[in-house]
C-alpha cells in the first residue's frame, strides 16, 4: 500500500545519526516531507514555521515538555496537537516509551493513518539502540584485546614465556577462577604496576 506522502513530519532529535536513520526510513516508505530539528532553541517557533502534521521526539530530550504546551487551545498555539496514543492504545505507548520515542499529531488527524509512521519510528529507534549497543560491545572488546596484549607482553618478559604460552596461562587461570580472560589480564597489569 502506498504511504501518504503529503504528511509533513518533523523529527526533533539531538542525535543526527539516529535522526538520519529515521529520516531515511520515512523517505523509503514514501514520506518525502521530513524535516529535522536538532537545536532546541526557539523550538516552538521553528515548529510553527514548519507547520508539521506529525512530530517525533526522542524521550531523552528535555524539550519534550515544550511540545506539551501545544496541547493548549489558546491564542499562543496555532494548530493544537495531541498525543499520538489514545485511551485504548496502551500497547502503542508501551512500545514507543520502550523504544525511547514519542509522537504528537495535529489534533483531528485520524490516528490509523499515522500508525505506520509511528511503527516505523519505533522499529528504527530500536534498530539504532541495537546498533549503539553493538558499537559499545565492539569498543569494549577492542579495549579488552589491548589489555590482553599488554598482559601477554608482561608475562613473556617476566616469566620468559612465548606468546602462545603466555596466552594459554591466562586462559587456564581465567577458567580455573571462573573469570573472563580480560579480568585476569587487568589484574596482571595492576599487580605489575604495584610491584614496580
Amino acid at each position: 500500500m502506498p504511504a501518504e506522502p503529503f504528511f509533513k513530519i518533523v523529527i526533533v532529535d539531538e542525535s543526527p545519526i539516529r535522526a538520519a536513520i529515521l529520516e531515511e526510513g520515512l523517505r523509503e516508505a514514501g514520506f518525502t516531507s521530513v524535516e529535522r530539528i536538532g537545536d532546541m532553541h526557539n523550538l516552538l517557533a521553528r515548529i510553527y514555521a514548519l507547520d508539521p502534521d506529525v512530530i517525533l521526539i526522542d524521550l531523552e530530550n528535555p524539550s519534550r515538555d515544550v511540545l506539551e504546551q501545544m496541547f493548549q487551545v489558546s491564542r499562543a498555539v496555532k494548530r493544537p496537537i495531541a498525543m499520538f496514543v489514545d485511551q485504548s492504545d496502551s500497547a502503542s505507548i508501551q512500545a514507543s516509551v520502550d523504544a525511547g520515542v514519542s509522537a504528537y499529531i495535529v489534533d483531528g488527524l485520524k490516528k490509523e493513518r499515522i500508525k505506520p509512521v509511528l511503527d516505523l519510528c519505533i522499529s528504527r529507534f530500536n534498530a539504532f539502540a541495537r546498533l549503539q549497543n553493538e558499537l559499545e560491545k565492539t569498543k569494549s572488546a577492542l579495549e579488552e584485546r589491548k589489555v590482553i596484549d599488554r598482559a601477554k607482553g608482561l608475562l613473556m618478559k617476566l616469566k620468559g614465556l612465548s606468546e602462545d604460552e603466555a596466552y594459554v596461562l591466562m586462559r587456564s587461570t581465567a577458567m580455573r577462577e571462573k573469570k573472563r580472560i580480560g579480568e585476569i589480564a587487568q589484574s596482571i597489569i595492576t599487580a605489575s604496576e604495584i610491584l614496580k
Binding site: 530530550n61 515538555d65 511540545l67 506539551e68 508501551q94 514519542s102
Partner: peptide
C-alpha cells in the same frame, strides 16, 4: 528523568 512528560508516561504505564 529529563521531562515531566516522561515521568508522567512512565508512571502511567507502570515503568
Amino acid at each position: 528523568e529529563v521531562s515531566w512528560s516522561n515521568v508522567r508516561d512512565k508512571l502511567n504505564i507502570g515503568l
